[in-house]
């Protein structure tokens, strides 16, 4: 029997993998993919909570749809900026973006 806890653990694991990817990957595109994983972990959480806690209300579903839409917009802007900087420096490695001192 799959319970709420299973979904939450899946969500937490996915979130951690995404966070690791976002922090450890060198390519800007891979970092954006890590962030997508984090957002999808949130979606799993939202849908699981909605299904198990308030199945008669659709709040979690609505929230998840909003998250999907906004994540798409975010990645569209993110990839546009990656292309922009690639034209300038011919690289998408995050390590090379060091003109401004950290």
């Amino acid at each position: 029997m799959i319970t709420l806890n299973h979904y939450l653990i899946l969500g937490a694991v996915l979130f951690c993998i995404g966070l690791y990817g976002a922090l450890a990957k060198r390519s800007a595109v891979a970092v954006l993919m890590g962030i997508e994983l984090m957002l999808n972990a949130v979606n799993i959480n939202l849908l699981a909570f909605n299904r198990f806690l308030t199945p008669d209300k659709m709040v979690g579903h609505v929230f998840a749809i909003f998250v999907i839409v906004v994540a798409a917009a975010e990645v569209a802007v993110g990839l546009a900026l990656v292309i922009n900087i690639y034209r300038d420096r011919s690289t998408t490695m995050v390590d090379d973006f060091d003109w401004l001192k950290w």
Binding site: A28, I85, W99
Partner: peptide
């Protein structure tokens, strides 16, 4: 500016 932009996105 483009570097700042990409850092801000990430």
């Amino acid at each position: 500016s483009s570097e700042a932009g990409i850092k801000y996105v990430i």
